[in-house]
Simulated assay, not measured.
Amino acid sequence: MSDNPDEIIVHAVDKCDICGESLQDISPERHIIRQVVDIPEVKVKIIEHRAEVKKCPKCRRKNTGKFPDGITNSVRYGGKVKAVSVYLTQYQMIPFK
């Protein structure tokens, strides 16, 4: 169990199970603790690369900015997506379909 959980949810007791008396103003004697360990939600990060196109005022030639190596198509998957794909298909044996 973790001594420093990221989130704590208290499940309060509002009334007595037998007589229905209100317990809202009564302090708890103790807490029974159970923890759930999970992976946080994964969010896709999309990075857009923009190459400038500028025309030289002197010679009128159009000059284009250079994309980094490997950025050759309009859309591509990054290295982490590829790594997860290989892990799921080769180690976990999850089919492509």
Rank of each mutant, 00 (worst) to 15 (best):
S2M: 00
P5M: 01
D6L: 06
E7V: 10
I9G: 02
I9W: 01
H11N: 14
K15T: 10
K15Q: 10
C16H: 09
D17S: 12
I18L: 10
G20R: 08
L23I: 08
Q24R: 14
Q24T: 15
Q24S: 13
D25C: 12
D25P: 06
I26K: 15
I26S: 13
S27F: 05
P28A: 12
E29W: 03
R30Y: 14
H31C: 07
I33W: 02
R34F: 05
R34N: 07
V36D: 10
V36L: 11
E41N: 08
V44F: 07
K45P: 00
I47E: 14
A51C: 12
E52L: 11
K55T: 15
P57V: 07
P57M: 04
C59L: 04
R60D: 12
R61N: 04
K62F: 14
N63R: 08
N63S: 12
K66F: 06
P68V: 04
D69W: 02
T72C: 05
V75D: 05
R76E: 15
Y77F: 15
V84A: 04
V84W: 01
S85I: 01
L88D: 00
L88T: 06
T89F: 00
M93G: 04
M93L: 12
P95A: 11
F96E: 15
K97H: 06
